[in-house]
């Protein structure tokens, strides 16, 4: 049992101190792939947050019913159901977002953040705490995505919040006076660096922001972010690679997570 923390702390820890993207290094694939524009990033972050909160609630409710031996498949079914629901809603009401996110919308199922939170938190804690934890992690994920996307969109396309109507269509036609993003003033004289929108720019932006996050963490006396890949992976407990000490991160094998 985790020690009792106040709900406020459960929420805020996901924002900065345990930010899933920059501190725990989880969910790198969607972070890199969907941060090409702020609107896409917001859509992805909100979709993932909804799945995270709902699956955390249901898993927490079922935590005494699910036998621990089959918990991973059970969690996957719960998560996949919510992903399907979100996918259908997005397809029906925000079709432009559906085509922008493409395969990464159904791939929320295998997002390590969600399975990781189910395993590390929702399976052991009360419903309210799990919901708040999911919300905090979801907001943290969205903030990180938007940060990445702001850098990439401003440098790579010279716009900010372009295509906002794609998301706002949820609230009706031409909300906010048909606001559809800003075009930055200097694009008249400077051609945007398209490479930031493309794959290499994603890796580069992520690397540089990660360096900044590390610097901030070190100034607060916290350790640098290491690739959680293996230890944070929900499969860590039954992973033979870890058990044999051949872990992906050789030097970090004793840090058995969860």
């Amino acid at each position: 049992m985790a020690e009792k923390k106040s709900l406020g702390k459960e929420f805020t820890k996901g924002l900065i101190a345990e930010n899933p993207v920059f501190r725990l290094v989880l969910g790198t694939c969607p972070t890199l792939a969907t941060s090409t524009s702020v609107v896409n990033a917001l859509g992805m972050g909100i979709s993932a947050m909804i799945v995270l909160v709902c699956s955390n609630i249901v898993i927490s409710l079922l935590r005494k019913v699910i036998p621990s031996k089959v918990r991973i498949p059970a969690y996957i079914v719960v998560i996949a159901s919510f992903v399907t629901i979100v996918q259908m809603i997005v397809k029906a009401f925000v079709p432009a977002l559906d085509s922008a996110l493409g395969v990464f919308l159904p791939l929320i199922v295998v997002n390590c953040i969600i399975l990781g939170r189910a395993e590390a938190f929702a399976g052991k804690n009360s419903v309210v705490a799990s919901a708040v934890d999911g919300l905090g992690m979801g907001v943290g994920f969205t903030i990180a995505l938007c940060l990445m996307a702001s850098v990439r969109e401003i440098l790579g396309a010279g716009t900010f919040l372009a295509g906002a109507q794609n998301l706002l269509v949820l609230f009706g036609d031409n909300v906010l006076g048909g606001f559809n993003g800003f075009t930055l003033p200097w694009t008249e004289y400077l051609t945007p660096m398209t490479v930031f929108i493309l794959a290499p720019g994603g890796f580069l932006t992520f690397g540089l922001l990660m360096a900044c996050a590390n610097r901030l963490a070190e100034s607060k006396g916290k350790p640098r972010a290491e690739l959680g890949g293996c230890q944070a992976c929900p499969m860590a407990k039954n992973c033979a690679l870890l058990a044999e000490g051949k872990a992906c991160n050789d030097e970090k094998k004793e840090g058995e997570a969860v």
Partner: peptide, 21 residues
Amino acid sequence: KFLQGLPIVLIAASIVSLSFM
């Protein structure tokens, strides 16, 4: 020092990815 660890790995990945473009 500030790039050691994960950041430099990501930047290296960026350059490899650039070559694939």
